[in-house]
């Protein structure tokens, strides 16, 4: 099937997901005790002020009505404004999107490159390196990102002072600073991810090495370099790409913690914070963005499949 048709079909199939997550979030958030009006009003306001805030936020309307209002607005590109700062949700999110995307993309690139390299190496050398990758994989997966983040801060930022402790430097402001500000957070996130990719790479490379066509190539004198880098890697790439896609989505979890510890103004920490404040429009918007992100990642994986595997392309 053509790439375009795949994209269209995928996007159509994703629409229910968007509805489902937004409706689900809406219902869940509305169940949250301690309504936002109470939080906004604080403790030095009067009962009338509290009711006024409720009216203004439309909290007394039936839930389906509230959701419908949100939905119709969302269709027009208006995701409402934060119940607290009054700032437009789209503007809050677009401020924060680059941070989370930088983290996730940088972590994915790092774990993709380092993981594939390590995996290849351990597949070829075996023995000690293989054990090392296994060990690193286990350690990387086992160390909670929030703890790892604290540890790398303590060691590399506070003690050694190699990298900034916190914060995010926008790319357009200072590319060097941007990269520097990502090193430690990405380390905390990517250690486990590198390990996962390395393991997957090794397994699928070993798997591919045992395929008949590789033996045919070896027997017929294809160059070992070409066999490894052209044929084995390309065939092993499919499961690696799948895992990379899954990883990108699951990195969101680690990003929540890492954004918190490194004080980076990203979407993941925004979601968590908005959840606590019951800032419904912000939660809705953030979940919407995250869902779209998940859809885009899955789409990218599918497109990579089409690119890599002619069987998908022509079936």
């Amino acid at each position: 099937m053509s790439a375009l048709r795949l994209v269209v079909r995928r996007l159509l199939a994703s629409t229910p997901l968007l509805f489902l997550t937004s409706a689900l979030t809406f219902v869940l958030v509305s169940l949250v005790p301690g309504d936002p009006a109470r939080t906004i009003a604080g403790q030095h306001s009067t009962a009338e002020q509290y009711q006024l805030i409720r009216d203004r936020l439309g909290l007394d309307q039936p839930l389906p009505v509230q959701y419908w209002n949100w939905l119709t607005q969302a269709f027009h590109g208006d995701l409402g404004s934060s119940l607290f700062s009054g700032e437009a949700v789209t503007s809050i999110l677009s401020n924060r999107l680059p941070v989370s995307l930088s983290l996730i993309l940088a972590s994915t690139v790092v774990s993709g490159l380092a993981g594939v390299a390590l995996g290849l190496l351990s597949a070829r050398r075996g023995g000690v390196l293989m054990r090392l990758v296994d060990g690193l994989a286990t350690l990387g997966l086992a160390a909670p990102p929030f703890w790892l983040a604290l540890l790398v801060i303590e060691v590399f930022a506070v003690t050694l002072r190699w990298f900034p402790v916190t914060g995010y430097v926008p790319l357009e402001e200072n590319p060097g600073g941007w990269a520097g500000s990502l090193v430690l957070p990405v380390t905390s996130i990517a250690l486990g991810a590198v390990a996962i990719i390395a393991k997957q790479t090794r397994d699928s490379v070993l798997d591919t090495m045992n395929k008949d066509f590789i033996r045919v190539m070896q027997a017929n004198g294809f160059s070992p370099r070409s066999i490894l880098y052209r044929h084995i890697l390309r065939n092993a790439a499919l499961p690696i790409v799948t895992v990379l896609g899954v990883l990108m989505v699951s990195l969101l979890g680690a990003v929540v913690f890492v954004e918190t510890v490194f004080a980076m103004p990203g979407i993941a920490s925004l979601t968590q914070q908005a959840t606590i404040q019951h800032d419904i429009p912000v939660i809705q918007g953030a979940v919407l963005y995250i869902t779209v992100f998940v859809i885009v990642v899955n789409l990218a994986v599918d497109l990579a499949y089409v690119r890599l595997d002619p069987r998908v392309r022509t079936s």
Binding site: I153, A157, V158, R161, P164, V165, T166, G167, T260, V261, F262, A263, P265
Partner: peptide, 18 residues
């Protein structure tokens, strides 16, 4: 005014002259 929510990080920003 920079918002730095992690106390350690904030203090370190001052220590390093940020």
């Amino acid at each position: 005014i920079k918002v730095v929510t992690n106390p350690s990080s904030g203090l370190d920003a001052v220590k390093t002259g940020q």
